[in-house]
Nucleic acid binder design. Structure first.
Length: 965
RNA sequence: GCUGGGAUGGCGUAAUGGUAGCCGCGCCUGCCUUAGGAGCAGGUCCCUUCGGGGGUGGAGGUUCGAGUCCUCUUCCCAGCACCA
């Protein structure tokens, strides 16, 4: 019998109209009911319209919210438009329409597209960030931020996009380029409004711990973005050469002139060989201006600063990381840990706006300092020996405290005429080593090298060429039966000639001397410490970044670097500080299409906020809204808008002409949905209390470090001023996986591979589209669109539609277990966002239903309710045909009967020695004896046992039986 | 480089430490037909001497038993990256 194909057009339209007429999805806050606030990241209505990827998240929240509603909760599932900002304005400019008209048109298109998919949005709560009724409150929040000192004027150089002709926040950059148009940004000095998000850095970071239902990768992105690092600030006193009187100068605290540096590694203080300050360092500005000029190479430095300023951010950071800089002649600084006098450089690898703008350079243990030191021929001092552990027997280190030896030696000894090196091949153990030793009392390391070479090899004329640093070995000394912890100082030695004397027999018994090329040596050497020594010899020293035990560090030598860190810092006069990578939020845009910043400039009173009662400051209607490119906003040209009166002195004042960034309106919109038409407040305390926080929030992962940080920041501020009552706005977050095109590329007009949801809905129906998108795979996965798989979803719905003719009044017992398992599965999976497995479970149930050939009406109605969140139109139709009361979407969610979830019998696998050899069908509560008895009857099991008796039996009720002979 | 996530048939994927590959797509065989993006039935990891044997990126380990837990490693995706 051919299956029927249901008339999706008719059914979709019929029910969408009915739900609208009946206000089926009307949201009311009902104190008597539990609430569920389910939110999508509201869209930016671009001119391109939707593609099939956009609704995926909306379908998920729709399924989720419908499930919540059927569980009797009061559900808030709203939709609105984030319509201010650059994309809309650039689109308008390109198409020569006013942004307001472009936005209106785009919103109409988006809304129509969304409505065809049959979402349960309550459209009476629709909001639009460009509506003065809405941005009234965006401006209100700005005034509150200003009142609390969190919005301030700044003249610091900011990121400027020469193409969009506006300043940008750090978050608007991608690898030094404008995130919107990919143009490299430049630094530009402009008066700006800046929000002090850094005041909230600590809480933004710490409170991530209170968000267990956020995906780890989003939280990790935020942690990276905030970039907290704990360290110390240290003062390096300056000593002046030109005019010694400068050394007597004291500041207000009685301190001589100094550079304050920030470091996270005070443990490497003994390895500091110079200090570097950023080109923007304020001391430099002053020093170059001073009349007596403390620097001897002022003009050279000025040239360097000019060259740096001319570079774009990309040039400065992406120039293959080639280091540049200039030495400050005429001054030096003193290392506070040991009084050593070291030079000072200015170099642009040090950032002016992080930490103190000055660093202590430790080339031995920092890659950037190492690169700089190598290029400028500065000293590289190793103060941590890279540690290697060599366990002969596991666990041995835990039992014995190791004996520390600070002055071990490791010798790489070159042959007098050949390109080979001396190694020792041990006789009693399978070892290959270099020559080693320990410095004797009263001898220098160099004398010890000579002595050890003579004693162990007999060679008389070694010449120590150079020291190669040191390595730290922790090992078990077999002959002495003790753990040893040895700093091995590596020496490179060349033998002058073959002159040699005899050596003691005991040395001869230990090992043979072999001569190997460095290549052969690599494989020959057993200890990792010796391999490291060889590596340093062949490739040179590389900065060691890890922890380890300190060397050449005065009294600290031999202590573990992480353990000694605090003591070193204290001794050098360090002050603990925490720094953040996060920068304050540059909040001004020199563009038309945004919320006007509600501030005034009065000649008499200075900066004056617009009084609250004068909000909203409306964006004026204009004919020309093109950006000026001068750093002035287009609004500056509208004189009758700009010129106004000062609310304080009633004198003339000018309006701020910059507008807010795109992210302003979206930083608090979730609060407005709770009470969207309130003229007196952003949100009423009652509605805020009832609906807060957002229970489930769904959107793209690309917002991890932009919208989601900004919104958390504003929310915490609103919490502080008691507008919000929760510390976090979004309890649970899901990031929706992308839908890419069938060709594996991003869906884009450019590639001509865009699938339009309207077409899909037209041809296959809204329900097939919805079921397919939820069935594609795990919600967060990026998955390629596949039209033939979509046909599979449609087939599933057609089979259900056909099955309506198989419904009988009486319950079909053989289906009840299957049905109740499915109820359980779907009920668990929807809240967990495992939509794919929920649908899979319903497909399995349908297979069972078709095998049974009929189903009871009540069972059928339960099945329809399970599917209703996914396929609302078809299920509503079938629900009515089955005699359901009211809308299926207001019906009660079915409950699984636990009694029916337990099987009478189960088929479990039987293993013999861990390999599956057969299966038995028994009661899930069968005893071990019964199970074994049944298993022995299985021919496969009997054969595998070969008559042997099982010695060990592992039996897990209802799961597995494992017989081990 | 650092951090987070991942790797299972031809494809998307599924498996509280317990029979690997459920469900769907595709494909193969046959049937039916008003020839469709249709329907129905069966099949579809690899090898096999038909007894079995092997198999979840790779190598070890823990366990009666590992796709799942641990160690190392390769590759892929994402965030950050001259932030001291």
């Amino acid at each position: 019998m051919a299956k029927e194909s249901y008339d999706h057009k008719n059914i979709d339209e019929k029910w969408q109209a009915r739900w609208r007429e009946d206000n089926t999805y009307r949201t009311e806050s009902d104190a008597g009911k539990e609430k569920a606030y389910v939110l999508d990241m509201f869209p930016y209505p671009s001119g391109e319209g939707l593609h099939v990827g956009h609704p995926k998240g909306y379908i998920a929240t729709d399924v989720y919210s419908r499930h919540q509603r059927m569980q009797g909760k009061s559900v808030l599932h709203p939709m609105g438009w984030d319509a201010f900002g650059l994309p809309a304005e650039n689109y308008a400019l390109k198409n020569k329409v006013h942004p307001r008209l472009a936005v209106e048109k785009n919103i109409a298109t988006f809304k129509e597209q969304l409505q065809k998919i049959g979402f349960d949005y309550d459209w009476s709560r629709e909001i639009n960030t460009t509506d003065p009724e809405y941005y009234h409150w965006t401006q209100w929040i700005f005034l509150k931020l200003y009142e609390h000192g969190l919005a301030f004027r700044s003249e610091e150089p900011i990121n400027w996009c020469p193409s969009c002709m506006t300043g940008l926040a750090n978050e608007d950059l991608d690898q030094g380029r404008c995130e919107r148009c990919d143009t490299p940004v430049v630094k530009k000095q402009l008066p700006q409004w800046v929000l002090k998000i850094t005041d909230y850095a600590d809480r933004l970071l710490a409170d991530l711990e209170h968000l267990p239902k956020w995906p780890e990768h989003i939280k990790e992105s935020q942690r990276n973005w905030i970039g907290r690092s704990e360290g110390v600030e240290l003062d390096f006193t300056i000593s002046f050469k030109k005019n010694p009187a400068d050394n007597d100068w004291r500041d207000a605290d009685g301190k001589p002139a100094h550079f304050t540096i920030f470091t996270t590694r005070p443990d490497t203080l003994f390895g500091v060989t110079y200090v570097v300050i950023a080109p923007e360092h304020p001391w430099l500005m002053q020093a170059l201006r001073e009349s007596h000029d403390v620097l001897e190479n002022g003009s050279e430095i000025r040239n360097y600063l000019d060259a740096t300023a001319a570079k774009s951010e990309i040039e400065r950071t992406a120039e293959g990381k080639e280091k540049t800089g200039v030495k400050l002649e005429g001054i030096s600084v003193v290392n506070p840990i040991n009084g050593e006098e070291i030079p000072v450089y200015v170099a642009d690898y040090v950032l002016g706006n992080y930490g103190t703008g000055a660093v202590m350079a430790v080339p031995g243990h920092d890659e950037r300092d190492f690169a700089f030191a190598t290029k400028f021929g500065l000293e590289v001092k190793q103060v941590i020996a890279p540690p290697f552990k060599q366990t002969v027997e596991p666990g041995i280190f835990r039992e014995n405290e190791p004996v520390f030896v600070n002055d071990g030696i490791i010798c790489i000894i070159k042959h007098w005429s050949e390109d080979t090196y001396l190694a020792l091949k041990w006789k009693k153990v399978a070892w290959g080593t270099l020559l080693t030793g320990v410095v004797d009392e009263g001898l220098s390391a160099e004398e010890t090298v000579t002595k050890e070479i003579r004693e162990e090899t007999g060679y008389l004329n070694p010449k120590i060429v150079r020291k190669l640093g040191a390595v730290d070995g922790l090992f078990y000394h077999v002959p002495k039966q003790v753990n040893k912890h040895v700093h091995g100082h590596i020496f490179y030695v060349e033998l002058e000639n073959a002159d040699r004397e005899g050596i003691a027999d005991e040395e001869n018994e230990k090992h043979d001397i072999v001569w190997l090329t460095s290549e052969e040596l690599k494989d020959f050497l057993t200890p990792d410490t010796h391999k490291y020594a060889l590596d340093v010899f062949t490739h040179g020293y590389q900065p060691y970044l890890g922890e380890g035990s300190l060397m050449d560090s005065g009294a600290f030598t031999g202590r573990e670097s992480n353990e000694a860190m605090a003591d070193l810092a204290a001794l050098a006069g360090g002050r603990s500080v925490t720094n953040y990578r996060l920068r304050d939020w540059v909040f001004s845009r020199q563009r038309y299409w945004g919320e006007p910043i509600p501030m005034l400039y009065c000649d008499a009173c200075g900066v004056v906020p617009v009084p609250y009662e004068n909000l909203p400051v409306r964006l004026p209607e204009v004919e020309h809204y093109e950006p000026t490119g001068t750093g002035e906003s287009p609004l500056a040209a509208i004189t009758d808008w700009v010129n106004t009166t000062c609310p304080n002195c009633k004198g003339p004042a000018k309006r701020e002409t910059n507008t807010m960034p795109q992210w302003a309106g979206s930083s608090w919109y979730y609060l407005r949905f709770m009470d969207p038409h309130n003229d007196n407040a952003l949100v009423s305390p009652e509605d805020e209390k009832y609906w807060s926080p957002v229970d489930v929030y769904v959107g793209g992962a690309e917002h991890a470090t932009r919208h989601l940080i900004y919104a958390r920041f504003w929310h915490k501020f609103l919490y502080d001023i008691k507008v919000a009552t929760t510390i976090e706005p979004f309890t649970e977050l899901h990031s929706v996986g992308l839908v890419i095109a069938e060709d594996g590329r991003k869906m884009s007009k450019r590639f001509g591979n865009v699938i339009n949801p309207d077409d899909v809905v037209e041809r296959f129906g809204a329900d097939a589209f919805r079921v397919y998108e939820m069935f594609m795979g795990p919600f967060e996965n990026t998955i390629a669109w596949n039209t033939s798989s979509l046909v599979g979803a449609r087939r599933f719905l057609d089979r259900i539609y056909t099955f309506r003719n198989k419904i009988v009044p009486e319950e079909i017992a053989e289906l009840s277990r299957s049905l109740h398992k499915t109820i359980q599965k779907v009920s668990d999976d929807i809240p967990a966002f495992r939509f794919n497995t929920a649908i899979s479970a319903m497909m399995i149930l349908l297979n069972d239903m078709e095998a049974a050939g009929k189903m009871g009406n009540d069972q059928w109605k339960a099945f329809l309710r399970l599917l209703a969140p996914f396929a609302p139109h078809l299920c509503e139709e079938l629900w009515q045909l089955a005699g359901g009361t009211g809308s299926i979407h207001l019906a009660t969610w079915p409950e699984a009967n636990p009694a029916l979830l337990v099987e009478d019998t189960v088929v479990i696998g039987v293993q013999v020695a861990g390999k599956r050899r057969g299966e038995i069908t028994i009661s899930p509560s069968a005893s071990e004896e019964e199970a074994v008895q049944a298993a022995l009857l299985d021919p496969g099991v009997a054969k595998a046992l070969g008559g042997a008796k099982p010695g060990q039996i592992v039996y897990r009720e209802g799961r597995i039986l494992n017989l081990i002979p």
